[in-house]
Design a protein around this nucleic acid. Structure first.
Lengths: 215, 215
DNA sequence: GAGTCATTCTAACATTAATTGGATTGTTTG
DNA sequence: CAAACAATCCAATTAATGTTAGAATGACTC
């Protein structure tokens, strides 16, 4: 085999991995799976696409070993194949945010009412531990159960209205969700402030917060 | 604008960045540009594709801000837009190598005659400094000039035959090139051992060696 | 300013990917 | 074992991408 044929093969392999995640829908699925394992139905619902399409995209992700699946009763539960894939999603969306002016613009356009002025996870967690702030996790409870920031309180966005009375109005509320591409925390902060709470948003999710490549 | 429309836009942006590198040829161009800036002609030659196709792929990379171009006389010299893109290439090929059995197989198939048993860059560089080994960089000299491992000697693969007499046969030779997807060092080691040298290969390139994510 | 040379553009074609609806598989539950 | 249900497969349509050859652009050179 010639050197050219060898190189073509090698680069083709890396390209198959890259191609498998180079689609808006598949990136969205990855973001969801980075939070916690989910069934096809759940993924389709969250990402607002048909079951068939979701299944097709999952197949593509599986063939590049980005996700695994296990049968659970009559459901199939998909999960991220390993931590590095979740980190790759973080790397990609951060890089895109630094690199693409159009994305920067869009992120500015949807900036939350208030972003917290806390600037490290450590400080955030410490303030939550000292009860200086009320740190709430507004993702679905299954995602909270799978992993969450220490000292955070689970208050899923869909239950916010009914359970908001468990929050104090005289202590700052800081909300977070899956990360900068998830709008739950943004919506939660907007609603809370409207109700008279002192709410702001922590823009990163669990994966982002645990993976800071600043040296 | 609905939340769905916003999310679609955001994920689409990250996908455009990802798509721009999700092609074997474009990954190969990125690997070449990670070494040093190059003209379209040089890239086409090294990657063995037509000028027109090279230009088209570069256009795709440029539109996602992965590369920059500057006019130099009648040439246009392309370069990596920033260090993070080079690192992304490293992350991707390493991840693919861990993840895809087929790629693992291919890499095994082309394993060099001898891989050095040195296992950290620091040790490699230190041995070169102490002249315990002869560390040779077999990439084209322009790439060496742009960046190289400390204490390495430039001995481009195409000049190896004519300049090999500058190497001592009684001291180990360690050769490196662009990284695990470049076959120059492999070819160099094979030829050198055939000529009676004691040669082995360092599998990483400059970018890989400077970017070890082991914590 | 005509000619040369590097690069890009254009148009055409071939290939591959995304998406949908309906049929199919396989599991669970009565 | 039949009904119910989750998920995948299949076939067909549409959209996007890769590739080539040749024309066009735009910079430098004599």
């Amino acid at each position: 085999m010639t050197n050219r044929q060898i190189k073509d093969q090698l680069f083709a392999q890396v390209a198959t991995l890259t191609k498998s995640i180079a689609s808006p829908k598949r990136l969205e699925l990855l973001e969801l799976l980075a939070q916690s394992p989910k069934t096809v139905e759940q993924l389709a619902e969250e990402a607002e696409m048909s079951i068939a399409l979701t299944s097709a995209h999952l197949k593509a992700l599986k063939s590049a070993q980005c996700v695994r699946v296990k049968q659970e009763g009559k459901y199939r539960r998909y999960e991220i194949a390993n931590e590095q894939i979740a980190q790759l999603w973080v790397i990609l969306h951060r890089l895109a945010a630094e690199q693409l002016p159009e994305l920067q613009q869009q992120l500015t356009d949807i900036a939350p009412q208030r972003t917290t002025d806390i600037d490290s996870v450590e400080e955030l967690i410490s303030l939550a531990e000292l009860q200086q702030i009320q740190l709430i996790d507004v993702r679905p409870s299954a995602e909270f159960a799978h992993a969450h920031l220490p000292h955070a309180l689970s208050l899923p966005i869909h239950e916010l209205e009914s359970k908001a009375d468990s929050l104090a109005k005289d202590k700052p509320v800081v909300a977070y969700c899956r990360g900068p591409f998830c709008l739950y925390a943004r919506d939660a902060v907007a609603w809370l402030n409207q109700q008279g709470f002192n709410a702001s948003q922590w823009q990163d999710g669990v994966t982002e917060s645990h993976y800071n490549d600043k040296p």
